[in-house]
Design a protein around this nucleic acid. Structure first.
Lengths: 229, 229
DNA sequence: ATGACATTTCGTTTATAACCGAACTATGAT
DNA sequence: ATCATAGTTCGGTTATAAACGAAATGTCAT
């Protein structure tokens, strides 16, 4: 009764198909320009501009001016969380006509979630790190053990990049498709960055989907004892 | 890009102020009749009926017919989670004119969340159970230890009531106002029920807010080493 | 300066859906 | 049987906002 209207405000913003498409496009954590977002949701730049202004006003997105471009990105992790929570509802929801295309399957296999890995692959890596004792369940999130840090540093992660910011290091993020938490936070982001740099992953253009390269498949098996598909 | 439309569908449903008010009213986990819901969101029964039909269609709520009444309740925990996630956005959002009334403060102190306790009180109890070893962090949720079970049974909880259903026993539920997880699931529900039966709690009419009775305040101090306010 | 491109502002059209009054169905009480 | 109450369905009104075309602003390159 009291927070109803406030909830509605945020939900209504996300509830417009064009805006939802734009927000979804931002779920991979990158910042996109206004025109790119317009294109990705199939509307003209004028219209997109209006939408983005409202999203900014409500602090769902943030802008960074760079020359004549304006880069929009999600304002914070909470926005991404809310979007995932809504996606869970959509899956649970009415079994309407929902053509499960190949893209859908690709997303379930592996995708970026804000700035870390999600899908079967993301969950599998998280499980692997949990079972070999690199990660433990802490208060509100995960925590890496001393052995885990050593193990991941040997693997090649540069821990000097994290631990500075206020940001939570190893978030627990509920996976939209797997319903099992995967690793997020600064550590999750670092890991994604690293796997990307190794060319173990390859991005599907115009999508959040991610595929494993041949090297990635081998590396996953060797380093994390994971063999998917 | 692909799940955009589906997200929008759920969000748009929640995005209408009247529907959001009804869903909020259901957040305390009880089932309410159509007319009660109409009243709680300030619309006529005809209009509410239409809204409820759409929410049912999308499986955000469930109905139970009982005589000439129809009792509506949230369809599952995921719906409650999504609503909480949206509430987080609203708080983080634009610092608009938001009169922080006494009701708001009351909700922050203690409220029901679906069917368990939330707010400072809910979080404090959870922390207490964690620190004395009754609860531990498990995979995806909390788990109670053997000692924890003994301790809570001595306190008076009837564990025979849980453990049967498929339902997760001790969910971790992110608190909207405290940003710290509190205890949910069957155990959380059982605890709320018990505290209610003891008359340690008193419900604020027409609200999810809950207050501590004098006995409750004393009991909390003695049993959980908690002294709030 | 001039042209090219990104983005926003303005004004107008148009579709959607929230809302209520009125009438209808279903259940329970007398 | 009759009445009251809970809930739904239907039709029409009205407000809202999404969308685009046209034109303005801002930034970079030549």
């Amino acid at each position: 009764m009291i927070e109803g209207p406030y909830i509605a405000e945020a939900a209504a913003l996300i509830g417009d198909p064009s805006r939802a498409a734009m927000l979804s496009a931002l779920m991979d954590g990158r910042a996109l320009t206004a025109t790119e977002l317009a294109y990705s949701s199939g509307i003209t730049p004028q219209t997109a501009s209006g939408h983005l202004a409202r999203l900014k006003e409500a602090r769902l997105v943030e802008v960074e001016k760079q020359g004549r471009h304006r880069y929009y990105r999600l304002a914070n992790v909470h926005v991404a969380h809310a979007l995932e929570a809504l996606a869970v509802l959509a899956v649970h929801g009415a079994p309407r006509h929902r053509p499960t295309g190949p893209r859908d399957e690709a997303l379930r296999f592996a995708r970026t979630c804000y700035d870390h890995l999600a899908g079967r692959l993301g969950v599998a890596i998280t499980q692997s790190l949990l079972s070999d004792g690199s990660l433990t369940q802490a208060e509100n999130a995960f925590a890496f053990t001393p052995e885990g840090r050593t193990r991941l540093e040997k693997f090649g992660l540069d821990f000097s990049k994290i631990g500075k910011g206020r940001r939570s290091v190893a978030t627990r993020c509920l996976d939209w498709s797997e319903r099992t938490p995967h690793l997020g936070g600064a550590l999750g982001a670092l890991l994604l960055e690293d796997l990307d740099a190794r060319d173990w992953l390859s991005r599907v253009p115009g999508s959040r989907a991610v595929t494993l390269t041949k090297a990635g498949r081998a590396g996953m098996r060797k380093q994390f004892d994971i063999s998917l598909d």
